[in-house]
Structure formats: structure tokens, C-alpha cells
């Protein structure tokens, strides 16, 4: 099934309609660079409700400017958005491990977010200087910890396709898939206009949506 969307509000239609009814759970969006266009939209969805959002960044991807654009677009104070989104960057898999296993709970206690975004968490696990078994086990510990936290809040994982240099570690993505409640593949469709995003649901149902990237503006350039 495929649907075309052309919507007025940035928070109508997918991807938000795919997760907005959930009380909690892990939602995995994986795909090409189009994936990162979803981040400000997801964050803005909760920030516009006066909530706080946690953003765990595994690839130094956080870019505040699309979020500022979105706030202006929907008539919110950009400063409020920026002061309500909390970022922590991890540059190694051990830091990502420490962030999820040790720091995340205190971040949740302090800010009570309904939404936690994990951006490119696997990038830190592709580092060949960390033995494969060690990286794999650390990832499994992280996945277990997320599963334990997930019933009460929404965890969105944005995970780009594994790089060529990931080599044997490309299977790490399957660990995230195993734990996710719903899985979506996100791509710029090659056959359509370049300014569109295609989201294909892989779990639990097989469905597909295509929507133009021009609306909302904030879904563009997320580095």
C-alpha cells in the first residue's frame, strides 16, 4: 500500500502519525540521509507541547537551525525550543554505552521527556579499534537497557544505513531491529522527485508513504 501526502501542518501525517498514539516503545527509522530530516520534526512535535526532549547523538549530527526554522514556522519561540531540547554527544561506543547505561536515567528523571531520540547510535560501534565481540556485547547491553526504559516513553532511533567501512559490523543494525516495536525504512525515492521522502514500514505491517520534503521546511537539511 502506498499513500501520497501533501499536508499543511508539519505534525500531520507520517512520521508522527506512525508513533503519536503510542504510550511508549522503541521505533526504529533507518535509511539514507533523508532520515535526518525527520529529527527536527520529531523533536518539534513534543517541544511544541511544552515538553522536554532528550537527544543522544552518536555522530555529532545535532544541528539546531532546522529546529529554529520549525519553531518560527509554527509560531513558537525558538529559544524555548532550544532550551527544552537536551543533547549529549558520544564519540566512542564506550561513551554511548555510558550515556545509555549510566546517564540516561538521570536525564529522564531530571527532564521527564515523553520522547528520547537516539541519533546514529551505531556509528560509534563501527570503530575497528574496538574488538567486534566487545562492541557487540556493549550494544546488546544498550539494547536491553533501552527495552527496560521503553514502556513509559517513546524512543526513536534514527540509524543510517551502515557504511561500507562497517564491514562485518553491518549486522549491528539487526540488533536494533530485534528490539524495535515498529521499523521504518526511510529513503529519498530514486524514481520520484528528489524532494520527497519515502517511508516504508517493515514491522509489524508492510506499508509505504511518500511525502514531499518541502513541507515542512524543517525537514530539510539536517546536516
Amino acid at each position: 500500500m502506498s499513500a501520497q501526502f501533501d499536508f499543511d501542518s508539519p505534525f500531520q501525517g507520517p512520521p508522527l502519525s506512525l508513533i503519536s498514539d503510542a504510550k511508549g516503545g522503541i521505533f526504529l527509522f533507518y535509511g539514507d540521509a533523508a532520515l535526518f530530516g525527520l529529527a527536527p520534526l520529531l523533536a518539534g512535535w513534543r517541544l511544541s507541547q511544552g515538553e522536554r526532549v532528550l537527544f543522544l547523538d552518536g555522530d555529532n549530527r545535532f544541528n539546531p537551525y532546522p529546529l529554529v526554522d520549525l519553531a518560527k514556522e509554527i509560531g513558537h519561540d525558538p529559544n524555548t525550543f532550544l532550551s527544552s531540547l537536551f543533547v549529549s554527544r558520544a564519540f566512542t561506543c564506550h561513551q554511548m554505552g555510558s550515556l545509555v547505561l549510566n546517564q540516561l536515567q538521570s536525564g529522564i528523571t531530571a527532564h521527564h521527556p515523553r520522547l528520547v531520540i537516539l541519533c546514529a547510535p551505531l556509528e560509534t560501534f563501527y570503530d575497528e579499534s574496538v574488538p567486534l565481540i566487545e562492541a557487540k556485547n556493549l550494544l546488546l547491553h544498550i539494547v536491553t537497557a533501552l527495552s527496560q526504559l521503553a514502556p513509559d516513553r517513546i524512543f526513536v532511533i534514527l540509524s543510517p544505513f551502515p557504511k561500507k567501512s562497517a564491514g562485518r559490523r553491518t549486522f549491528f543494525l539487526s540488533h536494533l531491529k530485534t528490539t524495535a516495536k515498529r521499523i521504518f525504512r526511510v529513503e529519498r525515492p530514486g524514481d520520484a522527485s528528489e524532494a520527497a521522502i519515502r517511508i516504508t514500514e517493515e514491522k509489524p505491517e508492510a506499508r509505504q508513504w511518500v511525502f514531499p520534503i518541502e513541507a515542512p521546511r524543517a525537514a530539510q537539511g539536517y546536516r
Binding site: P64, L67, S83, F86, V87, S88, H94, M96, S98
Partner: peptide
């Protein structure tokens, strides 16, 4: 062994 300490949470405005 291994650097583990991740960055503490900071708001996006603080990060800027």
C-alpha cells in the same frame, strides 16, 4: 581503560 565519560546533557541553546 577506555574513555567512557560521555558529554553531560546540555540544552541546545547551551550547546550553541
Amino acid at each position: 581503560w577506555r574513555k567512557r565519560e560521555a558529554e553531560g546533557f546540555k540544552s541546545a541553546s547551551q550547546l550553541l
